Simulated scan of single mutants.
Amino acid sequence: MKIAFYGSSLLSAYWNGAATYYRGLLRALAEKGYDIAFYEPDVYDRQKNRDIDPPDWCRVVVYDGTVEALRKVAAEAAKADIVVKASGVGFEDDLLLAEVMAAARPQAIKVFWDVDAPATLAEMQVAPGHPLRRALASLDLVLTYGGGEPVVGAYRSFGAAECVPIYNALDPQTHHPALPDPRYAADLGFLGNRLPDREARVEEFFLDPAARLPEQKFLLGGSGWQDKPMPANIAYVGHVPTGAHNAFNATPKAVLNISRASMAANGFSPATRVFEAAGAGACLITDYWEGIELFLSPDDEVLVARDGADVAEILAGLTSERAESIGKAALERVLADHTYARRAEEADRVFRRVAEQRAMEAAE
């Protein structure tokens, strides 16, 4: 089946947290025989900060950030069996949704793929006339990269025919154990861009423990933190390219995951960083969110902190031997249960089931 996928960017992870998810899942779907075209706008300097070349498993179409160019690529949805509009494309999202779904053939499977469901649902909750809310009844599927039953129930209450979580996962071809890199030597590392929905939690779970443990070294990576006041024992390395994530995760004694506030409140929303870190064999400390035990076993495969004091306590008592043991167990777990190959199997089953339903309805 042919997929026309309209998303933020496949070629650049610059200010684009969905890149790892898109790459891992779409490559796994391509390996299952799907013919995929990915359409991304040239916005936010992403094309100037590409971190992969166009892949051979997917045709990537980059279009100018103009309405004219948007309408031109939207028309190509007519060639596809499955038409996907993702959330957070970054240029005229509402118009893109309307144009793409209008161009799709009647028999095509129409999908909204939400990579930030808590934020999308919050928008629709306060806006009865929200374009997506109006469009849901005409779509076949909503797929999300997290959220569990709270998100499924919310989408159905807004009129979605079906909502299925296809969770973040590990792509072992790109995220795997690596040799330590002296640039990233630290007791605790955190990698994440500075976002309004995350900053207060970074202060609580990262900056506060650093202040509590002045004798330990902390490492901060990600864009936007250069003017943030922070303790002297924090080394800031700025944007870390995707190709360096393995070394960043494998080098410190432990690495930290801090969910955005909306993700933590909703639960069942493991970030790509969780699987990247586990895939590198890192000892992961994560803030608490409901559902963590569905992905990694607390105390054995991941360490869970409810606040900054917990992070400091965990780190102060963490030996290198225990950190290594936790990282090894996490790696074994994600390789067994949480790869994008597994997620692609789930998505494939959903697509084929909907296609069979369509065929049966057409034959009646």
Score class of each variant (00 low, 15 high):
221 G>M: 07
73 V>A: 07
108 A>S: 14
7 G>Q: 04
20 T>K: 09
290 E>S: 09
351 F>W: 13
226 Q>G: 00
151 V>P: 04
20 T>R: 11
270 P>L: 05
337 D>W: 10
83 V>E: 03
55 P>T: 07
290 E>G: 03
329 A>H: 11
90 G>F: 04
300 D>Y: 01
173 Q>C: 03
319 T>A: 04
121 L>I: 12
12 S>N: 07
352 R>K: 14
139 L>C: 03
252 P>W: 05
202 V>M: 13
257 N>G: 00
91 F>A: 07
363 A>E: 15
273 R>E: 02
246 N>T: 02
329 A>P: 05
180 P>L: 08
215 E>G: 09
358 R>H: 15
332 E>R: 15
2 K>D: 10
247 A>V: 00
61 V>N: 09
170 L>Q: 12
283 C>Q: 02
169 A>D: 12
223 S>R: 11
238 G>N: 03
277 A>E: 11
52 I>H: 06
323 A>C: 09
242 T>N: 15
46 R>Q: 15
240 V>W: 10
30 A>Y: 06
274 V>W: 14
326 I>K: 10
37 A>T: 15
122 A>S: 14
114 D>T: 10
333 R>G: 03
266 N>E: 12
17 G>R: 07
305 A>V: 02
313 E>Y: 01
43 V>I: 15
179 L>M: 12
251 T>N: 05
125 Q>W: 10
21 Y>H: 15
233 N>M: 04
21 Y>L: 13
315 L>S: 10
240 V>Y: 10
181 D>A: 11
247 A>F: 08
53 D>K: 13
162 E>Y: 02
137 A>S: 15
227 D>S: 09
332 E>G: 03
69 A>M: 07
356 E>I: 00
76 E>G: 01
66 T>L: 02
179 L>Y: 06
60 V>R: 05
70 L>K: 04
40 E>K: 02
217 K>T: 13
